[in-house]
Amino acid sequence: MTMSCPPIPNDHPLWKPDMVTLQRRERPLDPLPKPPSPTEEGGGPRRPDPGSPEKDNLLKRMRKVDPKQAERYRQRTGE
């Protein structure tokens, strides 16, 4: 991966003469420690089998949910 900024073509429909071209410059000196890949951890990314997903455990999880909990969920509006 390169970090050089791609040039804006002169015929760019949105080009403005006062735009400043910019060169991005820094790449990591020491990258984030590489975690084991998902495969190494066992299993790894798998696409779900859409045909017959096992529902039993999920239904069990859903039945544990208090049917009235949404009535207690009273939030302020944020941003």
């Binding site: 990314p45 779900p48 999880r61």
Partner: peptide
């Protein structure tokens, strides 16, 4: 729950 059942692909670990 979906993730636990292997139904949701992970990008991270």
């Amino acid at each position: 729950g979906l993730e636990e059942e292997g139904r949701a692909p992970r990008l991270t670990t």
